[in-house]
Amino acid sequence: MSADSPQVFIVGKIAGATNFNHSSLYVKYFFRAGDHWKKISGQEEGETFQSSSQNSKFIPLEHPIDLNYVTKSVRGWPKLLVEVWEVDDHGRNSLGGYGLTSLPIEPGEYQFDIPCWRPEASFFDKLIGAYPELVHRDLLFSGESRFGFKVESTGNIHIELAIITKDFHLHGVQISNRNYLNQ
């Protein structure tokens, strides 16, 4: 891709979590973009530190995100998958939930929640605190094959991001009506 190819910068953080069963958790995250997208810098996958909160339902995570993509197409705009892992009082990890969102296309600053869910556990699994996990999480990125699951809602992951676009106008693409620098 050339030096004047359109670019997208994603800067922000995984701010925290609310409404999960345990007060201690960590999050694995995965950014995915289409075939015509190439990562220039940053981490597309990672894991937050384990964090706890005794005084409130909000669990701070404060994990930074800083990604830069170059693209040939608006098609395949990045998506973010989160996988939440709860830690009980005995140090055991169990699936807290999965959540998926498409990132905003228009440049700007955003605060939003990713609602999470997990496959429904059997009565026996719930007694011992175990929840089924997906063997292939990539099926979450496709619209097919994920229907028919029995699921339960869990908590929310709070995201704060800035989306910055560059050089789309050089290719005849207007992302926004706003006047952003080098849009």
Rank of each mutant, 00 (worst) to 15 (best):
I114P: 14
Q54P: 00
N21I: 09
T101I: 14
I105E: 00
E106G: 10
Y69S: 06
R118E: 01
S51H: 15
Y69F: 15
S102R: 07
N21Y: 10
G91S: 03
G99I: 10
G99N: 09
W37D: 04
Q174F: 02
E160C: 11
V70D: 00
D138S: 15
T154F: 02
P132R: 08
Q111P: 09
I164Q: 02
S122D: 08
D167N: 13
F147W: 01
D4A: 07
H169P: 08
G155L: 05
F147A: 02
I163W: 01
V74Y: 02
P104M: 11
V70M: 06
F149P: 02
V70E: 00
G97W: 04
H136Q: 15
C116W: 03
L67F: 02
A162W: 03
V11A: 10
T101R: 08
D4L: 13
D35T: 15
F141N: 03
A130M: 15
A33K: 09
G155K: 04
T71W: 02
E62Q: 01
K150M: 05
G148F: 03
P78G: 07
K38D: 05
L103D: 02
P107A: 11
M1A: 06
S73P: 00
G76R: 06
F147N: 07
S52L: 14
R137V: 06
G172R: 12
L181H: 12
M1L: 13
A15Y: 00
P104E: 08
E44W: 01
H36P: 03
G96H: 07
D138R: 12
L80N: 01
L134A: 13
W77G: 05
L67P: 07
S176M: 14
R32G: 04
F30P: 01
I105G: 00
Y110N: 12
R92M: 14
Q54E: 11
L80R: 02
S94T: 11
Q43V: 00
G97L: 07
P119Y: 03
L139Y: 15
D113E: 13
G155R: 04
P60S: 06
V74S: 01
T165E: 04
L95K: 08
T71K: 00
K13L: 12
G148P: 08
D125S: 12
S176R: 13
D167L: 06
P115N: 11
